[in-house]
Design a protein around this nucleic acid. Sequence first.
DNA 1: CGCCAGGTTGATTTCGCTCAAGCAATGTGG
DNA 2: CCACATTGCTTGAGCGAAATCAACCTGGCG
Lengths: 243, 243
Amino acid sequence: MAQSHTKATSHTCAVCHVGRRSDWHDLDETSLAVLERGRRRRELGSGEVVFAQGERNDGVYCVSGGTVGIRRLDSNGNSVLLELAYPGDTVGYRSFLTDSEHKTSAEALGPSIVCHIDHATVTALLAANPALGLRFLKRSIGALEDAHDTMFRQATFSNRHKLVHLLLVLVGRHGHRLVNGSQSIELPVSRRDLASMVGTRHETISRIIGRLETDGIAHFSGRQVMIPNVEALAAELDCLASA
Amino acid sequence: MAQSHTKATSHTCAVCHVGRRSDWHDLDETSLAVLERGRRRRELGSGEVVFAQGERNDGVYCVSGGTVGIRRLDSNGNSVLLELAYPGDTVGYRSFLTDSEHKTSAEALGPSIVCHIDHATVTALLAANPALGLRFLKRSIGALEDAHDTMFRQATFSNRHKLVHLLLVLVGRHGHRLVNGSQSIELPVSRRDLASMVGTRHETISRIIGRLETDGIAHFSGRQVMIPNVEALAAELDCLASA
DNA sequence: CGCCAGGTTGATTTCGCTCAAGCAATGTGG
DNA sequence: CCACATTGCTTGAGCGAAATCAACCTGGCG
């Protein structure tokens, strides 16, 4: 929950994310000063939007805490959660680099901290630091390969397998190992969003969850998930590869 | 069929694709000379592979004629066609830029012409022409946005709508307008590949095609498709947006 | 307290997958 | 040239899965 205060002075992008390197680490002295001047820290509550689909790009956002969801909407109210962004990730760089409106929305999936880096600053930093452009290139290629993975799974996995895979990914990001060796996750997303990620309806997700429960593979209570045996969960997917 | 010879002199990348700009147009004189030395033209027959998933990257390939399919395979023999590449497109640049093995396979979907540009040459050209890196950046962002579109459709469209959408895309690329105003397409892909792109089985594609036939919306004969009224086809999708 | 969003559950119908057979075009070896 | 295998596609029957529509629950919140 939104630890709100941070002595704003002590917290610079340079010291941000010591463990996970952000895209902004490799800047030289003067560029860091430019960055400090051009960035503004924002604390977001659950559901608050970072940027909205269709808006004009106004710079990029570096996630510093929490989880940010990238989603696409259509005029019918359909919404699909396409990516999750974590501390160290930069979002909004695609519409910046193509100089276009945002093709997706970004919103905090829980209390989050995000640094906005304005358009002029990013432009200046990119001009002075070719390596920064390279980071974005690598990032977009990585995101594309993830998207291809997802497209492949959409075409070849059953809904149940897709949900299991998603759970395994989320365990990696949000899981806590308990004393008895089981894993506990706090899901960052609603059932509806789970459904959109799996490519099905939320009722169906409910039923698949029910089946996982009766199979003893996972126990759901709201957004809390207990997984007694992660290997058993992973084994569900292995039976595909072994055929 | 793969006939391999070409009067190598007469055909340079500089004069290649006059209409559709390739990624290699904006090079300076000396870089063009480097490119000419480092590239090798290949003519491929239907089904011949440009590069295979898992192979080490050995440079990039510029499509000069025909159609190239980018597909992903798994150990079970599943195959999903992820992208189509056309003259002017460069393929294989992602594993080049990330210095990794190919994450996908590329193969000619019909008689095609492809220029291989070897690893050392691309490295040299990238170093001398920052704009080239930018082209690749734009390209990967574009591909990512396409992938997001596809993921969105996978989650929200019915199979029929997905097939109709795919047909409309293919009309744009492969369609010929006939005298009576109808469109004729020569599909570049098999039914199985259509199925993988839609995310379903080939039998289901057969049945959906049957329904489109009886609805009088499209007429299939092998890989030839006749669409008497493209607007009627597009109207299928509009009814989604209007709700 | 009533309201509402998010979630679950049930009943019904539609849809798509699986398995299997049949068919046409193509290629191959005798 | 024909018998035969192969490949890609279509079609059918049966079954299981998921969409749909609807009721209902539950926890928060004004």
